[in-house]
Structures are given as C-alpha cells and as structure tokens.
Design a protein around this nucleic acid. Sequence first.
DNA 1: TATATTCAGACAAACGTTTGCATAATTTTT
DNA 2: AAAAATTATGCAAACGTTTGTCTGAATATA
Lengths: 346, 346
Amino acid sequence: MENRLPTIKEIAKQLNISVSTVSRALHDHPNIGLRTKMRVQQLAKDLNYEPNQTAIFFQQGKTYTIGVILPELSEAFFSSAISGIEDAAHKGNYTVLLGQSHDDVEKEKHLLDTFRKHRVDGLLVSISKNTNNYEHFEALQRYNIPVVFFDRIPKIPNIHYVACNMINGTVQAINFLFKKAHRIIGMINGPEKLPATKERLEGYIQAMTKSRLKYDPNLVVNCNLTKEDVAAATEKLLSGKRKPTAIVTFNDYVALDAVQQARKMKLKINKDVCFVSYANLPISNYTAFPPLASVEQFPYQQGQKATETLIELLQKKTDESAENNNVTYYKIILESQLIVHDNKQV
Amino acid sequence: MENRLPTIKEIAKQLNISVSTVSRALHDHPNIGLRTKMRVQQLAKDLNYEPNQTAIFFQQGKTYTIGVILPELSEAFFSSAISGIEDAAHKGNYTVLLGQSHDDVEKEKHLLDTFRKHRVDGLLVSISKNTNNYEHFEALQRYNIPVVFFDRIPKIPNIHYVACNMINGTVQAINFLFKKAHRIIGMINGPEKLPATKERLEGYIQAMTKSRLKYDPNLVVNCNLTKEDVAAATEKLLSGKRKPTAIVTFNDYVALDAVQQARKMKLKINKDVCFVSYANLPISNYTAFPPLASVEQFPYQQGQKATETLIELLQKKTDESAENNNVTYYKIILESQLIVHDNKQV
DNA sequence: TATATTCAGACAAACGTTTGCATAATTTTT
DNA sequence: AAAAATTATGCAAACGTTTGTCTGAATATA
C-alpha cells in the first residue's frame, strides 16, 4: 500500500514525452499542441495528479503564505480581524500562518523568527502591548519581507499600516451624549502612553470644545485596564466635585467593570450615570447594563484591508523585482463609527 | 542592494570545501573534523546563514506544519483551544496553519483541499455543525495524512480523537443542585442529533435516577440554540405542570437567553429559578445573572492534548515508515468538571 | 524547389538541501 | 614496511517543478 503520489515525471513517462511538455501542457502553454495537451490533462485527472506545492514553493522562492501575529485571539476584536484576514487571504490564494503573542514581546520575536524561517511571503502584525523596541521588525527590511501592521502600530517611520481613526467616533459619541442632554461627560481612558489612549483623548477634547462644554482635565482618568484600576478610576470620577452624568470608557470590558463599581456606589445605571464605550462586544447585549452606544472599529474590515494591501505589495514585489525601488508606504485609515444600541433590556 | 540570502553553497565556496561537508558540519555529524566543523559554524554565524526551509521541506517531503480546522474562532471555546494547539505545536517545532469553517461544510472541504495541497504533515479538526457526510475526511487516509479530531467528532470508526466526557460534569451539576435542595430540575438541551446533546442527556438521566428524583422527559427540552428557540424552550419549561426551580442549559449562551426569557416572565432569577450551564464563558461574570456554576470542558487542554497526539503520530509515521502498519487509534477522553462560581454580584 | 517562418516538443539547468557511497588522508596494528 | 582500520572529506544523485534555449518538423512564402 505504498502510495506514492503521482508526479509530472510519472505522467511524462506514461505518455512518452518530456516533463517540460507535461508542465507546459498543464499550464495551457501555447507552444503545446492541442492533442498532447488533452492527453496530458486527461491522464493527470485520471491519476489524480496534484502539483507538489513544496517543490513549487522551493522552485519559485515563494510560499504563498502570510504570517499573522496578533496579541490575543480570545479578544473579540482580534477574532473578528482574523476572519477578515483569512477571507481576503483565501481569495488571493494565500494561506495563513497564525501566531498569538499574548502581549509578550519575547513570544512576538520568537514568532517572527519562526515565520521568517518558514519563508512566509509577508507578515500581518498587530504588535503586543508591551512592545516598545522595534528592532526585530526593522530587521525584517533586510530580508525583504513586507509587513503590514494593523490596529496596534509601532511608532516608526516608513511602514505600511491599516488603522481605524478613533477621533471621529469619539466626537460622535460625545455629540450623542450631548443631544441626550448630558453636560458633564467623563472619560475612563487607557494607559497614558498607548496611541489608542491619545486618540480617544484628542477626540474627547475636540468634541467637548466644539460643544462649548470646555475641556476639564479632571473629568478624564487614565487606567491600566485591570478590574481594580477601573474601579478606582470610576470611583474617582463619580465622587469628584463635578460628577459626570455620562462616562465614555476605553472599551467594553472597562465599561462593564465601571458599571459594577457604579452599582457598588448605589448609583442607578442609565439614570444617575450612563456609559458609552468602544469595541462593541457581541456579548454585551446580555449584560445587565450594556453601554448605550459603542464606537465600532471594524476589525473584520481592518484585517481584510490589511491583507489586501499586503497581497498588493507582494504582487508589486514580483513585478518589479528589485529594479524599481518603490518606496510608497501605505497608510490606510478607516473611520470608526458610533453604533447606538437599542437596549430592549428586560 | 540585491540581498541574496547566504546558502550552504556560498559557505562551501568561501571555505573551499564541499557542500556535503558544510551540511554535515552544521548538523554536528561525527564524520566531520573538529577544525572544519568550527570554521563552518563560525562562517555560518558571520554570514547570518539560515537554512532554506522550503528546500528542506521539499527534500524531506515534510513541512513540519499542522493544519487546524475549527468552526469559529470567536467562540471562547475554540479560541482557547487554539492557544493550546499553538503552544503544543511550537513546543514540538511545528507551525500552525489555521482555517475556520464557520460551520459550513463547503468551506470545510475547501480548507481540507488547501491544506492537503500545502502538504501539511497532519491535521487537527473540530468538524462543522452541519457536517454529516465524512467522505472528505475518509479520503485523507489515502494521502496518508493523519488527522486528530477534537471536541466535535465525526461518527466514523478508526479515527483518532480527543474529547471531553460531559457525563460526569453533568452528574456533578445535578448533584450540586440537589444539595441546594432543588428537586425539580429541568434541562434545555441542544439539537437532538448532536452527540454533545446526547451526552448531556445521559448524564442528566444518570444523576436524576441516582438521586431518586426519577427521570421526567417533560423536564428536558431540545432547542436549536437560536435566541428564539431558547426563549420558546424556556417558556415551555417554566409554564409546564411541574415547574423546575433549576435549569441546566446546553451552554452559557443558552443560559443567557434563557435568563432573559425567565425575566420576561417576571420570575426572579436565583429565587424562583436558577441556572447551571456548560462552557464557562469568561464574560459571564459581567452578566446580570450568570449561571451559578458551569461545566468546564477544558478547551485549552483538549487542543494541547490533540496536538501532542498528532505529533506523536507523525513521529511514529517517520519511524516505521510504511513497513509496520500500526493501527492503534487514540481515543483520549478528558473529564469535564463543575466549576461553582462565587457570584459576588452587585 | 529552395528558403523562410511557424509550430511542437525536447534538453538541461536551476532552486538548496540531504545522504549513500566512494575515496583520500591519517593513524593504528601487525 | 605493509596491511588494516579509522577518520575526514568529496562526489553525485535525488526531491518535483519551471523555464530559457535548442532542434526538428510542418507549413507558408517566394
């Protein structure tokens, strides 16, 4: 039962022609006569011939494989993103090699190594929270492996990336609250250094200023996203001099923790204080007091777009192959958007 | 800036020795003298030599790659499982090729094709909900690609699999409720044909019988897991003749929907009726009325174990290579376990 | 009919690595 | 000093495919 798979050689031998003819026949090369072309294709079918991809990868120096490194698949954002990536990749006939960094820089480096060794054609990366040294990415340039970053983007020049602009969404969120007659609007933001934090703040300031509510720094608290820290931040906000009637939180998880703290403080949610958040967790319908609205960041689309961009880069690379040193860097920004939930909560 | 990567040839030329010597030197082959071994390894390091994996894959007819097909990454169960898979794979020096079937048989088939063409060494599969024809898996036998199934397992003989026995966990769940003085215990189960459904039912019957509560078929309702169907099932149970004071639900999502329905019926959760569930969603702490307890299925461990098993199979395959036709099929069963939540709910 | 053109196919190299076998160089044994 | 054993290295094939170049045959042009 030794089941060697049929090769091009096998076909050639059986038909008494050369391998090159077989190869060309299978590729519909014009130089091959109709008769032989048919004979080859028929036999290939009969034998269940399938080209040996490993041979082709080797021969072409390409693997049609994309490496994806992201922090954490269990976060809804990333599991959505990977779906977008997969779909786009399959459409472009690429396969996806996956790795999670679990927000650990060492793991990130290790994955990068593995993928490089596996000779992936390109990389899609959302960097780990704790990465602030980008040498391992810069080193990739030398290997001529293009990288497209998405969502979590390193602060270095000359990179390709896809991201979502949070400023607009934030402005929409504040305006939404303003229309609902809120005048003191607080924010529980993320870790100070995070770009995502800065963007949210910027949107907050813009919107507050435009609504003539003025920007009061006391109404913005940073936190490190742990349950405890969120609780502390919430308490601080809700027991301050100017007590907000609405709070914008860094993401849905933060919102949930903040709600818990607010309830501990005997506040009525959606009456004394209400929440608007980022991320749009699918599960939040089920929670007791989901945020009134969420700023959607379109993870699926981000993943998809990033993949399409990468594939485009890969095409270009083979087309121009080193001669034309093209140095345009893609910076693709999607717009976030406020989604208002219709909370028919029981 | 044409940056060809260094090859074994390059090293050979520079040191004026043959490629075979270089290859052997790099592999610490005993036949190579210490002097040359050192020189080769030094130069390799200096040149930043890295073996071309595509060449090796091709030459060895192995890719050190495992294909993983699972239904849906956004389900907590599977995103946990993939972490276990990844960790075990990396430990064994394998890389993971990922694909989601989204519970679509056609996608499943397509992924299988892609992975086969990419010449993965082995496969890890959790089948799609809608798969009831297993030909595409049986076809793999001919290609000599081992498959280890996990969690969702096809009903065919002679396969390797890792699964979690739900019977014990279910028994524990019922006993837990019994100790809390519940005597009428209902169950909202899954689609009738699903093996998972059958197992839960079996556990239910076992435990009820042992507790001398007798098995009352009216207390068990099947549903297709949609929100509407769950609501209908809940209503049926809670307006029946024998009204249960506790309900075991197919999974946490079902529990959440059932709670909503119960509240719609003006029942007090945890007073009039309480819930125990399967799956243990991390988010459920945040919900208004999380289940009192969950039957944990250890997805991470399932993934890990499945991967280890597959790698073992792959080792054996190369060891015995066709001569010794080993036909032991691994059937690995983990035990589920009831996790009681301490619901310090506000 | 002789020459140019087109068509159909074959030949062989190349991609980078591993590995069985042969051989040269060295050392050990008699 | 010759034979045997050991050690270190080289040669070449193999893995399956693609592709540039060459050749022979058929056809068209003059």
